[in-house]
Amino acid sequence: MRVIDRYAFGNALRDVDPSQKGALALLAIILCLALDHPAVGILTLIWMLALTTWRARTPLRVFAGVLLTEGAFLSLSVVGIALSIAGGKPEAPVFAWQFGPVWVSATHESLILAAHVLTRALGSAAALNFLILTTPLIDLIEMLRRMRLPEELIDIMALTYRAIFVLLDSLERMTTAQDARLGYHTSRAAMRSAALIGSCLFLDAYRRSQQIQTALESRGLDGSLRVLPLDYRRDPRMWQIGVGLTLSLVLARMMV
């Protein structure tokens, strides 16, 4: 969370209009799903990797780290698609293992389907990673505001995002204070300390919400959180990248 946030605020595409980055990510996802082929998925992944590391200058290991985490969850579900478990001996499997009366097998079709799902999902995930690693949440919220999402929703998102960091700070302070008094000395104590923090954090969040409300009223709160719109730079290269992405993905689909 903090890592993604740090790179989102400190990359070379930070001041590019979030609508442009959002549109590019959306385009990649739509193409990836519509063209539905492993080659397209992999090519999308390569495009997004290149954009994030070259254009936005985010380190490769950060992009890879986020993608691998997502990949780990993905592979769990893909295994379920590729393999089937049955009581009898399967017909025409690519491979089959017998565990007592149970057969675990994979067919040609199931492997192809799994490959399709995996690459499609990885390509789409890579596109989203490009977006979140180059665009801070402030800018994404600003983008949604411009898309005329209901004000209440926007306000809640903005407050939640800010509150996450305030509560993380509280959590760290409390944990340190407990640790200093041997709160994590034994596993038993650690369980107790963690439970105590849970209730303390809740009270802390409640107190803070009241304080914020008071402070907002004091600055003339009038129903919604009206703030200045943010300014961005429009990057003409993003259009070219979008065209290049579309052409290359369509071409890749036609060639295979």
Partner: peptide, 14 residues
């Protein structure tokens, strides 16, 4: 307890 926005500019503009 006072800063409600993650954006410094937007907080000051409130």
């Amino acid at each position: 307890d006072q800063l409600f926005s993650a954006s410094v500019l937007q907080d000051i503009s409130f």
